[in-house]
Design a protein around this nucleic acid. Structure first.
Length: 112
DNA sequence: GGCGTGACGTCAG
DNA sequence: ACTGACGCCACGC
């Protein structure tokens, strides 16, 4: 068995993202925290983006801790907003959503 | 196969 | 309240 520790971290991130229910969102920091490293938010972004293209993850359900989409305009931002809008997630006029309403919690993984 | 970078976040001042 | 520096380490070139 080859190394598992670091690979597990990446796999865990992917699994967590797959567990995000429709109509909810998660933050990088949250996933990083659930993965075991609250400072690995950047790795989440890194792995997510890389794996999303391979694993077809719901990358659009992952946003930053500010409740906003991290992508710049023209870089897929509107695409993500559109995907979330179809799930019932609406953003405020500041391009921000209410994390209190849409933020996913691991305790909900048995419910929607 | 090495180096810089980065869909972010936390900590300190 | 805001600014700046640091950390995390997998991925792409």
């Amino acid at each position: 068995m080859t190394a598992a520790g670091r690979d597990a971290f990446t796999s865990r991130i992917i699994q967590l993202i797959k567990r995000i229910p429709r109509g909810k969102v998660a933050t990088y920091g949250q996933i990083a925290l659930l993965a075991g490293n609250h400072r690995a938010a950047r790795l989440v972004a890194r792995v997510l983006h890389s794996s999303s293209r391979k694993e077809r993850l719901p990358w659009h359900r992952v946003i930053n801790g500010q409740g906003k989409v991290s992508l710049p305009a023209g870089g897929g931002r509107e695409e993500q907003l559109d995907l979330l809008a179809e799930e019932g997630v609406t953003f405020g006029m500041e391009g921000r959503l209410d994390l209190k309403l849409y933020l996913w919690s691991p305790a909900q993984r048995r419910e929607e």
